[in-house]
Every structure is written in structure tokens, then in C-alpha cells.
Amino acid sequence: METQLLLTGAAIGALSGFFGIGGGTILVPVLLMMGYDIKSAVGISVMQMVFSSLFGSWINHKKGFLDLREGAVIGLGGFAGALGSGWLVSEVPEIVLEVMFLAVIGFALYRFFHAPEYTESENGHELSPYLLAGVGAVIGLFSISMGIGGSILLTPILVGVLHYPLKKAVSAGLFFVVFSSVSGLISLSLAGQVDYFHGFIIGVASLAGVYAGIRLAAVTGHKKHKNALIVLYIIILGMMLKKVLGV
């Protein structure tokens, strides 16, 4: 089991670095297929996200991809929202969490299909910090409750609604995961919902993958990067539909 978890962690880390996600959107369905229940999968996933998001954001900052000011505003909002995740996971039935997960991925896929094209040289318009913090808070609450870092929902909102360039949005999304995952780990730990041993194994294994994924993203064109994200969402949506429908 440990070898399988190490390989899973490395693969999740690579996807995390490339797509700017915490990894929970992929890891939760994978853990469900490995036999974990949804609440154990959520706890392991959140712990892994702490590792991958911290390391990945440090690399993105060094490469100049990350706007720390706007990222911090969104992230602090996410931190505040994610503090309620322990209560939500403890009180809400598993089927509701699974349907929420499907809704998040479905929305993200819809927004990416309809997102306008922006080049990386476009900076967009100045956004209100209150708007950014509010968006972060809502995403933080619901995403951590589903075991995902929130960037899978935040990135399409930044690109499709708030007019961020894709690579800037991807970096901001991963930085957001730092705040939401740390907050979520605190909340879920207090609720007794974290498998620390398996979470640590996957988290450590993910670090090498994160580095490789960010390097690959840096040399990938906008259109190819966006299309890859759409394919990712479709795969995750299919995996969760299979789980929820029991087919």
C-alpha cells in the first residue's frame, strides 16, 4: 500500500504543478477507487495539498509567475472560509458532498469552455480586494469540505469571469491552496477527520512531481494549457459520476 501511495503522490504532484491545483480534485476520486471512504479521502487530500501548494508557490514566486498581493487577499479569504469545513464535513451526508464535488467540476468545465482568450501580456483590470476576499471565502468553505484546494474552481473564475491571463491564474490558484489547505487541515484535525500517516506519505512524494509539473507548464503554450485543463475536468467528472452512480 505504501508503494502505491508514493507513486500516487508523485503523479498527483506533477499534475498539481502543471495545472496549479492542490491535487485534491484528482486525489479524492483516486482514493475512493482505492477503497477509502469520502471523509478519509478528504482528510488525506487536504494534508497532501499543504505540501504541494507550499512548495509549488515558492517555485512560482521565484519564476515571477505569482502576484503575491492579489494572491494573499484571495488566500486570506479562503483561509477564513475553510475554517468552517470541519463542521460541514461532520454534519453533511457523504452523498451531498459527492454531489457538491460534481457541481464544482461541472461549473469549472462550463466556464473554461466559454472563457475568452487572453495572452500572458495582458494584466486585466484592477480588482477590488473585497471582491477577491469574498470569492476566496466562498470557495474556501466549499472546496475544503470536498477535499480540494479550491483552485479547480478559482482558476476558471479568474480566467472566465475576472479576466486573468491563464498562467497568472494558475499560479494564483496554487497559492490560494496554501491558505485554504492549512486552514482546512486545522479544521479537519479538530474534527478528527485526518489520516496523518497516509497523508504524509502522499504529501512528501508529491514534492518531486510538483517541481516537474511547474517546469512543464512554463514551456506550454496558452491554448494547449487551457485544453489540457478542460481534458482534466472531463476525466475527473467522469470518475466522480462513476462513483456516485455506482457503475
Rank of each mutant, 00 (worst) to 15 (best):
S128V: 09
A133C: 05
G77E: 08
L127G: 04
L97Y: 08
A82F: 05
H114I: 13
L162C: 09
L97K: 01
L32I: 10
L66H: 04
G71R: 02
H125D: 08
P29E: 09
E98R: 13
Q48G: 00
V73K: 03
A72Y: 03
G136K: 04
D37V: 06
G43K: 04
L68Y: 10
M33C: 14
F79P: 04
I157D: 11
M34C: 06
M33L: 15
I157K: 09
Y130W: 15
A115L: 09
I59P: 05
E98S: 12
R111E: 14
L97I: 15
E70M: 14
S40I: 13
L158D: 09
K63L: 15
F55V: 12
V42C: 04
W58L: 15
M33N: 11
P116F: 01
A41M: 03
P116K: 08
P29T: 02
E122R: 13
S145M: 05
F79L: 15
A41V: 03
V135L: 15
V42P: 00
I144K: 00
Y118L: 15
L32R: 08
L141V: 04
A80E: 02
F51M: 10
P156K: 03
E117V: 13
A133K: 01
V104Y: 03
P129G: 05
D67L: 10
S85F: 02
L132I: 13
A108D: 10
S57K: 03
V161N: 10
E94V: 12
L54K: 01
E98I: 04
M49E: 12
I152C: 03
Q48P: 05
G86K: 00
N60W: 12
M34F: 14
H114R: 15
E91L: 15
N123I: 12
L66Y: 00
Y118C: 05
L162S: 09
A137D: 04
E98M: 12
F51P: 02
S121H: 12
G150I: 03
S121Y: 11
L31N: 07
L88E: 07
F107N: 13
M47I: 14
A133Q: 04
N60A: 10
G22Y: 01
L83T: 01
P129A: 07
G77S: 06
Y118P: 10
H114L: 14
G71N: 07
S121F: 09
S85L: 00
E91G: 02
S40L: 12
E126Q: 14
R111D: 10
G75L: 05
S40Y: 11
G84R: 05
F112K: 11
I44P: 07
M47F: 15
A108H: 08
L162A: 04
V99Q: 04
G64A: 00
G86M: 00
M33H: 14
G56Q: 01
L27S: 01
V159P: 06
E70Q: 13
L76T: 12
M49R: 01
S143F: 05
I59S: 02
G64R: 12
F112R: 14
L109D: 05
E120Y: 10
L76E: 11
V73D: 00
I148T: 12
P29Y: 06
Y110V: 12
